[in-house]
Design a binder for these strands. Structure first.
Length: 196
DNA sequence: CGGCCGATCCACT
DNA sequence: GTGGATCGGCCGA
């Protein structure tokens, strides 16, 4: 069930981003188990991708995480407010990452409602990368955490997403990336509610 | 050391 | 549809 290292160590980050649709992202903080079906992802293809923080091999204290072996979390603060959760893939020194942009709540809905201070779970509850982290309780101090451990992990619960149920588009909020802004690296499940 | 700005979200018009 | 919140990281001096 729990995805192992081999899933994350593959070469093609775009393929892995697509494969993550329909998998379940789970966190367990102090026994508070929460999870959601991954409904939206974006691939960031490392050194050659102008949209990536690691473009050109740029390695800093923050982005150094992406240069490690795949299967760990890369989390950073955006707009001073939002922790954005990424999954690092590929082998060491190839800084590929996948941004999780949307989930559909599955386990621990009451806990997630408390974390987000929402009274209801509507269609857009877990849509948006900042909201994913908020709902699952992920903090940027979790950056570098192993995703085969007991705090944050991804499971395959046997849900199959057919190709014709996947929308492929360009990535969001990366206009600065020039020609790479157009790459079809964003994957979204159409009408994900039917899978839970 | 100072200034700028972002892989966003929400409230408000 | 729009603008304000809010702060760590990055870059240039």
């Amino acid at each position: 069930m729990k995805l192992d290292k081999r899933f994350y160590l593959r070469d093609d980050v775009v393929e892995i981003a697509c494969d993550l649709l329909g998998k379940t992202l789970i966190t367990n903080y102090n026994g508070q188990l929460t999870s959601g079906l991954i409904t939206e992802t974006e691939a960031y293809a490392g050194k050659g991708d102008k949209a990536s923080h690691a473009y050109g091999g740029r390695k800093t204290k923050r982005t150094e995480i992406m240069f490690r072996q795949g299967g760990i979390a890369y989390i950073y603060l955006c707009y001073g407010i939002h922790s954005l959760f990424n999954i690092v893939t590929n082998k060491e020194n190839i800084p590929h990452a996948i941004l999780i942009r949307g989930i559909l709540p599955v386990d621990g809905k009451d806990i997630m409602m408390k974390r987000t201070r929402k009274a209801t779970i509507d269609k857009n509850f877990g849509v948006g990368p900042g909201k994913v982290s908020k709902a699952l309780g992920i903090h940027f101090s979790d950056s570098g955490r192993d995703l085969t451990g007991e705090r944050i992990w991804v499971e395959d619960r046997g849900i199959i997403i057919e190709n014709n149920s996947i929308l492929i588009t360009s990535r969001i909020g990366i206009d600065y990336a020039e020609e790479d802004a157009k790459l079809p690296y964003r994957f979204v499940i159409k009408d994900p509610e039917r899978y839970i």
